[in-house]
Design a protein around this nucleic acid. Structure first.
Lengths: 232, 232
DNA sequence: TGATTTATTATTGTATGCAATTTGTGCTAT
DNA sequence: ATAGCACAAATTGCATACAATAATAAATCA
């Protein structure tokens, strides 16, 4: 068994799913990209059937949009969805922090430290940097051993990269590495209140940095351009 | 357009999905039930392809377990998953309460009141009662207008009925109607702290009532039966 | 020329077919 | 009888075929 190296961990549809997911999160497939079943299947060496299955899964995760009769495309969440998403993320990641605070094993601490190290090293590459930053959060979630919590945090972190891709400032280090390190310290110390505050602040600053354009109405932004042009 | 009444709201696969989901949540298909693609497709008048698609979606929602090469079955979450699930639910529903507290419109209040009324009336039918109790929570989530929050609460509420089906006491009114009414009162009053406390307590008591059998091991429950039979 | 309509092509929606795997049954041997 | 084995039936995994819909190009008319 284990013939093909690429077939690890289940059916081939899952492989397609993982590949696409990775491509989307790495922003190799930017939001809005069309995802034709044929081309993908050809490229991946599987039939449309399996691609379709993967696309359905991705749509359930909110990473792709499935327009009936018009094909799939990488999702383009709205700004409002973005803000809501981070709100939800906060609620869940607070639970992560509460669960983990003071309960980290030596191994877990090592894993997290190593990860932060890697984040630090990869600060040059924008794409990798974003992915690692996200993985820090999913890593934390993983350690709670709470399966629903893990699944949702994973999904939200994945979708966050869409938000960042769409609305994030190009060159802001989206997730300050130092904030991750501080958070880890508080988690180790078991200072739950402080850790929660840090996590909240951390996600808040991502939201602010990226999703900030808090135009309650798109007209606000338009009127700004209008005045700049001497109109209105 | 809108030829078939049963085809409302999208492709036929979605119809299959909805039908199965409803059947599972109503416990017409108890946890563990086998879900053969053929039979379902025949019964629903669609091909295996569409059934498959629906099953994939359901598995993503945690309602169905997809064993490779062995077919799909209604999920049988473990007790631990159950407890974790309610923990996650709490985190999310706290956000629901915080969002809604003091912000309910007249219409929303009416809708919720009517729903509680319905819950009260249906207290006789066990199955309906459970479904309505769940729908109260999804209704609340809906009113936040936060799409990710809505999706997750929906999923968790759905899965909760699996937990209840598996581990819940047969005749306990799983969700005391009075608790719903109290919660609504606090939400209207805008007493966020009190409302949050109520929601927490509410979910806590569900957990306690249902998921309590904190048997760390299945042997405990077996040994009980053994002694009752004069064995062991 | 430019808008509108018609043909053509590409892509999705769904069913079906076949190989592979699992499950169930009956037979054989101990 | 029962454990083990061989064979048959059922079921899943996957690809392909064909119909239906949308996108695109060509052609027609004002």
């Amino acid at each position: 068994m284990a013939d093909k190296a690429s077939d690890a961990g289940g059916g081939r549809s899952q492989a397609v799913h993982r590949a696409l997911k990775r491509a989307i999160i790495d922003q190799a497939l930017p939001p809005g990209s069309k995802l034709p079943e044929d081309s993908i299947g050809e490229r991946m060496g599987v039939s449309r059937t399996l691609v379709r299955e993967a696309l359905v899964r991705l749509s359930q995760e909110g990473l792709v949009e499935l327009r009936p009769n018009k094909g799939a495309a990488v999702a383009r969440p709205s700004l409002e969805e973005g803000r809501d998403l981070f709100l939800t993320r906060m609620a869940l990641e607070r639970l992560v922090v509460e669960t983990l605070s003071g309960n980290l094993t030596r191994d877990q601490i090592d894993t997290l430290s190593a990860h932060i190290e890697a984040e630090d090293s990869a600060r040059a590459q924008h794409a990798t940097s974003i992915r690692l930053a996200g993985e820090f959060h999913t890593l934390l979630a993983q350690m709670t051993n709470n399966s629903s919590l893990i699944r949702y945090v994973n999904e939200l972190v994945g979708r966050s990269s869409l938000i960042l891709a769409l609305y994030g400032r190009p060159h802001s280090s989206e997730c300050a590495v130092s904030e991750h390190r501080d958070l880890l310290d508080k988690l180790i110390a078991g200072d739950t209140a402080e850790a929660t505050a840090l996590m909240t602040h951390h996600l808040d600053s991502i939201t602010t940095r990226a999703v900030l354009p808090k135009q309650d109405d798109i007209r606000d932004v338009l009127s700004a351009y209008a005045t700049a042009e001497g109109l209105g």
